[in-house]
């Protein structure tokens, strides 16, 4: 059930135009730290560095961050 719900959400998020209006005072949950698209910038920095140095693909989440000789 939860899985179906997730798939539905993922598919529906492709249809950005279908988004419903969410008033500013209804955005309490969206404002929580755990709902940020990057909840833990430090962990993301660790992970991006690992994968950048071990895989051919990189980037996608933003610009900047600094280079290194690990790849």
């Amino acid at each position: 059930m939860k899985g179906q719900r997730l798939v539905l959400i993922l598919l529906s998020s492709l249809l950005v135009g279908c988004a419903v209006d969410v008033k500013p005072w209804q955005r309490d949950q969206l404002a929580e730290q755990k709902m940020q698209l990057v909840t833990d910038p430090m962990e993301q920095s660790f992970d991006e560095h690992i994968y950048f140095s071990k895989e051919a693909a990189s980037g996608g989440k933003g610009v900047g961050g600094g280079g290194c000789g690990c790849n």
Binding site: I9, S12, A19, V22, L30, M35, L37, G60
Partner: peptide, 17 residues
């Protein structure tokens, strides 16, 4: 990048780099 609030509980972002 485009970030979109889809509902009171869903946030999505699409980036092209």
């Amino acid at each position: 990048g485009v970030t979109q609030i889809l509902s009171r509980t869903t946030l999505t972002q699409l980036n092209y780099s």
